[in-house]
Simulated scan of single mutants.
Amino acid sequence: MSDINKGQSIPFPISISEFTTQPWTFEQDVERYAELGITMIEVCEEKLDPQRFQEQLCMIKDHELSISAVQPFVRTFGSSQMQPIPKDMYERLSRLRFSIERLSPFAAGCPFILNTGAPEKGNIDAMVKNTIRELQNLAEFAADHGVSLALEPLNASSMNSESAIWTIAQAMQIIDSVDRGNVGLCLDFWNIWQNANVEEEIGRAGDRIFVLQVSDWRTPQSSGDRLVPGDGIIPIGKLLQTVYQTGYKGACSVEIFSQDVADSLYKTDLKEVIRRSKNGLEEAWGKFINHSISR
């Protein structure tokens, strides 16, 4: 475990999304994150066994981990390429409520991550209006169960297949329209780093940032092609500092997708992916801070 603590520690606890270790089982995720000195986990519901989910979720506390956020099995209002079924929006909402109802006792106070889904026939306006309406209703249900909701704008490459919004500003327009205290923003650097005026937009989001996710960028070779933090071209240190200045106190979750590419990280040593991710975050933070001080 000695090499996992190199560099200058970032000012957020580091969490690992279970999407980062997709080939592992839920049990392997919990055991190996703890073994590597990770203290937080972003739970992906799809990894849970419907017959054993309570037993599985109890493992988190047993291994001295805490939940940073939850990725529900159905997390979009409209159908999407990643989650095409069920097609009907109200069936999707019913499934999402079911997820909140059964997982919230193990994730008190945690954000459940959502995005709009694909606009049907390219009708972005209708998808945005539907999202506002249903988020207002869902927010009350979530509040009754002691959890929050975090809306995630996706990268422009996901438009019309996964999402109707691709900028922080668009997400914040929805969040402001919903106007519920437990509805905020999921900020994923991979998705938003190319936004115009990204630092200003992060600053404007302020205390509405509920979730922070990080990976790194190369020109994608598939819809799931992300890199270990520090291995790509995102100015991670600068963006971490911008988030820190908003007063954000939550976790920094490493969320890496790596499928349908010849050099998939999923085919490598995933323990090493976690080690390199933590070191990459700390090095990015340390280099930016040291550069700022020396100027």
Rank of each mutant, 00 (worst) to 15 (best):
I10T: 10
R180T: 01
P229C: 07
A34W: 01
N182T: 04
G78Y: 13
G286A: 15
L151Q: 05
L36Q: 14
A251Q: 09
S94I: 04
L48K: 06
P229V: 07
R52W: 03
R226M: 08
I293Y: 14
L57S: 05
F77V: 05
Q241P: 03
T21R: 01
I168R: 04
W285D: 12
D144R: 10
E35A: 12
D231N: 15
C186I: 09
G78N: 15
S66A: 14
Q51Y: 04
G117I: 05
Q213W: 02
N195G: 11
K267P: 02
E27R: 00
S222W: 03
A284R: 09
V43I: 08
P13S: 05
Q170H: 07
V183A: 02
P11E: 15
S79C: 05
S94Q: 13
T21E: 00
R92L: 03
R276M: 05
G146L: 06
L212G: 06
L227F: 02
Q245D: 14
D144K: 10
P11A: 15
P13V: 00
S158H: 13
K6L: 11
I175D: 12
T246C: 10
W166N: 14
M1V: 10
V183H: 06
I38W: 10
N130M: 10
F77N: 09
L185C: 08
D207M: 07
R52D: 10
S158R: 14
S177M: 08
M1Y: 15
G230S: 13
L187T: 05
V214R: 09
S253W: 02
A169R: 13
I175S: 10
E282V: 00
P111L: 00
R275C: 07
G280F: 10
N290T: 14
H145L: 03
I38L: 08
E199M: 12
N195M: 09
Q241E: 13
A196H: 13
N5G: 04
I236T: 14
K87G: 07
G250T: 08
Q170F: 05
A143I: 00
E272R: 15
Q136K: 13
P105E: 15
M82G: 11
L154D: 01
Q56L: 01
V243A: 08
I175C: 11
G232A: 06
A164G: 06
R275V: 13
I60N: 03
Q170R: 07
P153F: 14
R133M: 04
L138M: 06
A126F: 11
M127L: 11
Y90F: 11
W24G: 02
M40N: 11
G206E: 14
R275S: 12
S9I: 02
L114I: 09
T268A: 06
L151N: 03
Q28V: 00
E201I: 04
P13I: 00
C44W: 08
S223L: 13
E27T: 03
W166L: 01
G232L: 01
L48T: 03
G184C: 05
W285T: 08
V214H: 06
L265M: 03
G230T: 12
